[in-house]
Design a protein around this nucleic acid. Structure first.
Length: 852
DNA sequence: ACCCTGTGGGGA
DNA sequence: CCCCACAGGGTC
């Protein structure tokens, strides 16, 4: 029997990022497990914590240990394998253990301490005070005379707290307004004491149900016993006897048209019972999903499936990279693999990028596996999310479909993790813990001897390189290729339009002549066009055309974003906002204009050039409301518009039969992004959009407009040639020393004082360099034949100031099995300890996706 | 993070 | 001489 628990407390600081030992009270010993959530006294507060191990002995004296105050759940929210995974994650991504643990449970279970006031029996008080004692006038003199004048009210408060048990201060204050001082006095004297307890943000939802409490002859007698006046009660009982099973109170009231009082009376007479029953808030409760049966696999699909099924059957860990062109039927392979997995008694997780977690996507999984599926995504309310998670934890479902964090779905017997569109950057969390769901998937699957399927039409270079070289330290996926679309649909012809030629010929519009004619032709034929603007990120900024003034945030070095709806300017980073100016604040000129994401500008241009054209615009501005995404797409499907114009959102997974033209307005805009993955992102985007055209009987056409039409990413995307792209891109990465030929750690340091920051950043880099040299790690990255370690920087971050804090960064590049993350973390801790300046912050991003 | 303790400067 | 501000350190 374990008597000591090691607990990670929910106190986010470097100093408290270690286990603390607590005694387990006798009454909890049968219940506490690794993964249990507990309330513990910490300092003079009560905080939430997680048990990470159970012990018989501690290095600490028992007298110095405190007792666990409360066990917060009967079923631990985390199974032991997730606790182990959290510890791994904290090492891998240089973050605190509590942040990893917290990432694995729904936020509903992030309890906070509440303060309570309760009555203390005289013998529990420190100095044996008595209720009426007012004789010693120490301290608060005026207040005591008050209590002398109104002893009745004072004793009333005492009696109330005695009877009601622990109450919150807010509650007591509301009941006895203006008696704060009196309560304070009672607490000072020890008559009332304060305690703390952890309170969850959300409760398990219950509904009242009613069922008959009598049967057979007893029921007959009961029915006969009602007076004429109580005929409503009689009706209710008759109904309950007829349905036999418990019925929801609400449903009962509406079907019979009676009030709750009637039912209550019936229950008081003992003829019926009212019970609280736990329910799951189901976000899909009103939806019916059409069941689907497994399709016959094409030969390519069959080969892929057989590989996966073989590994599933043998319960061996394995990673597969399923590279299939758009429309090759990857999803059907996933579905059948999941079927195989659950039929063998194990569970499956499906990860999809947040943006493609659309109702259509959910439908495919619900259609095949029905109510065995739980769905987790960011648009669920806290309660819905909590309930979907509970279905998983309590073993009520076998499949979890969700975004990044669904990789932590607490299944007991995990057999398969599917990661669709594995190249998507949204699998990397940008906030702490900055984990990549791909790496976490592989680790988690290894714990369970489970299989991982990474699927994509354009796999990330990291995954593809690892599969081909079979040499990676982390994982070496088995490559499965699917090159064919099912019969009847062909990949569309993609034409690159050289925009420099257009300009030379005097066409200054944003549409080339070819694209212009294409749109006109679609309008005439009643077919549809998708226009894609691949500008990454933000945004509409405001610039004066007379003096060149750009509206910027006063606290961050970044331009403000224009929001049309509220007609104001907002800062993306700190939330600062101000009304949009009508004249330039610098020079007073009226030529101050909004330079759009592009989509608004393109929309304006379309209206000018194509009279009568109907356009649906889809971007961050038009899709803020819940469900607006779907609404816009449905309108387009119903052919209420000729053109769907949008950003990345239109690139993914859409499938409209009458779309025969896709236009990419400016392929270069993502190419010129200052990021070593710019070419890869461009290739992926172009391949995705091109896949939107001609998916059905009508042949499709794609125009890609570019000012750099010779770039390999554009040329290879136009030919649907992933392999050639990979060959060229890998050559570049190798020359420049970037992933997949090395790994990166981005260290960002911030401070409100620029001079101190620069000095600290320089110290940090030279410290790190020195320590790495001592370990003999240092070596050029240029030869790529052996282990290597290099540091770039420090330099100012791309956004040099946010919220009045300056930002500097450095980049660590390394290759080999050395623990570079640990060293960076150690040096970072040393820097922080040495400086003793709480204002310095250091953020460590392992395998960064955004180099910002 | 939060809260306690100790030191030191400034005001009466 | 006292009070408040801020720095420093510990939390099982």
């Amino acid at each position: 029997m374990y008597t000591i628990a090691k607990v990670i407390v929910d106190v986010p600081s470097r100093e408290t990022d270690r286990p603390f030992d607590y005694l387990i009270p006798e009454s909890m010993r049968d219940w506490i497990e690794v993964g249990s959530r507990v309330a513990v006294p910490f300092g003079r507060r009560t905080v939430q914590g997680f048990v990470i191990s159970l012990e018989h002995e501690s290095s600490l004296d028992r007298s110095r240990m405190k007792k666990i105050q409360e066990l917060l759940d009967h079923l631990p929210p985390l199974p032991p394998d997730l606790v182990e995974l959290a510890e791994w994650m904290s090492r891998e991504y240089a973050c605190s253990t509590i942040s990893s643990l917290q990432a694995m449970i729904p936020s509903a279970l992030k309890g906070k301490a509440e303060r309570y006031i309760s009555y203390a029996e005289p013998d529990e008080r420190p100095e044996g005070e008595s209720e009426g004692s007012v004789e010693d006038g120490t301290g608060t003199e005026g207040l005591f005379s008050l209590s002398l004048l109104q002893p009745a009210e004072e004793s009333e408060i005492i009696e109330y707290v005695k009877a009601a048990g622990p109450v919150t201060f807010t509650h007591l204050d509301a009941r006895y307004p203006g008696r704060g001082a009196m309560i304070k006095g009672l607490m000072k004297r020890g008559v009332l004491t304060e305690s703390q307890a952890i309170k969850d943000k959300l409760r398990i939802k219950t509904v009242k149900t009613v069922s008959a409490a009598v049967a057979g002859e007893e029921a007959e007698e009961a029915l006969a016993s009602f007076t004429a006046q109580a005929r409503r009660q009689r009706e209710v009982l008759a109904f309950l006897l007829e349905v036999q099973i418990p019925i929801g109170m609400q449903e009962l009231l509406t079907t019979l048209g009676v009030t709750a009082g009637t039912v209550k009376k019936l229950a008081e007479k003992g003829f019926a019972v009212i019970e609280d029953v736990e329910v799951f808030r189901d976000p899909y409760k009103d939806r019916r999903f059409k069941p689907t049966a497994p399709l016959t696999l094409t030969p390519e699909q069959q080969v892929a499936f057989d590989h996966i099924a073989g590994r599933l059957d043998s319960h061996e860990h394995g990673v597969f990279l399923l590279h299939g062109v758009t429309g090759s039927g990857k999803t059907e392979v996933y579905l059948q693999a999941i079927q195989r997995c659950i039929s063998e008694g194990r569970q499956a997780i499906v990860l999809v990028p947040e943006i493609s977690l659309t109702p259509q996507m959910v439908e495919r999984f619900k259609g095949r596996f029905g109510d065995k599926v739980a769905v987790l995504h960011s648009r669920l309310s806290g309660g819905e999310r909590y309930d979907e998670w509970r279905k998983i934890r309590e073993g009520k479902v076998e499949v979890a479909v969700g975004a990044r964090s669904a990789v932590f779905a607490p299944f007991p017997n995990l057999g398969l993790i599917v990661m669709d569109e594995e190249h998507e950057t949204s699998y990397k969390q940008e906030e702490t813990p900055k984990y990549h769901a791909r790496n976490v998937s592989v680790r988690r699957a290894a714990q369970h001897d489970a299989v991982v399927i990474l699927g994509s039409a354009t796999p990330s270079l990291e995954s593809y390189h690892a599969a081909r070289s079979q040499a990676s330290d982390d994982f070496a996926p088995v490559l499965l290729e699917m090159k064919m679309r099912p019969a009847g649909s062909e990949l569309p012809v993609v034409r690159i339009v050289d925009m420099r030629e257009e300009l030379k010929d005097g066409n200054r519009s944003m549409f080339s002549r070819d694209l212009h004619q294409g749109i006109v032709a679609r309008m005439e034929r009643g077919e549809q066009t998708v226009l894609f603007l691949n500008r990454r990120g933000f945004s509409t900024f405001v610039m004066c055309r007379t003096c060149g003034y750009v509206a910027g945030c006063p606290e961050c070095d970044i331009s403000l974003t224009y929001h049309q709806k509220s007609n104001n300017l907002r800062c993306h980073y700190c939330g600062y906002s101000e009304p949009a100016p009508s004249v330039c604040p610098e020079c007073g000129s009226e030529h101050i204009r909004y330079f759009g994401t592009g989509t608004q500008r393109v929309e304006g241009e379309l209206a000018k050039l194509f009279p009568g054209i109907r356009v649906i615009r889809m971007d961050v501005d038009t899709t803020v409301e819940k469900g607006s995404h779907e609404k816009l797409l449905n309108a387009f499907r119903e052919k209420k518009a000729d053109v769907l114009l949008g950003t990345q959102m239109v690139a993914k997974g859409l499938d409209f039969p009458d779309v025969t033209l896709v236009g990419v307005i400016a392929a270069d805009s993502s190419l010129n992004f200052p990021d070593f993955r710019a070419a890869e992102k461009t290739f992926q985007l172009l391949t995705q959009v091109a896949g939107r055209a001609g998916r059905h009987h009508l042949p499709g056409e794609v125009f890609v407009q570019s000012y750099t039409p010779d770039h390999y990413s554009i040329i290879h995307a136009s030919r649907h040639d992933y392999l050639s792209f990979v060959r060229d891109e890998l050559k570049h990465r190798r020359t420049l020393g970037y992933p997949p030929y090395c790994r990166l750690i981005l260290v960002t340091m911030t401070h409100e004082n620029l001079q101190i920051l620069v000095r600290m950043a320089e110290n940090f880099v030279s410290d790190l360099r020195g320590k790495a040299q001592q370990k003999g790690w240092f070596g050029g990255l240029d030869r790529f034949t052996s282990d290597a370690f290099d540091i770039l920087g420090p330099i100012a971050s791309p956004i040099p100031r946010i919220k009045n804090r300056y930002r500097f960064q450095c980049m660590v590049k390394y290759r080999g099995a050395m623990d570079a993350v640990q060293l960076v973390r150690d040096v970072s801790n040393l820097t922080l300890e040495h400086l003793k300046d709480a204002s310095l912050q250091i953020s460590i991003d392992v395998d960064p996706q955004m180099l910002m």
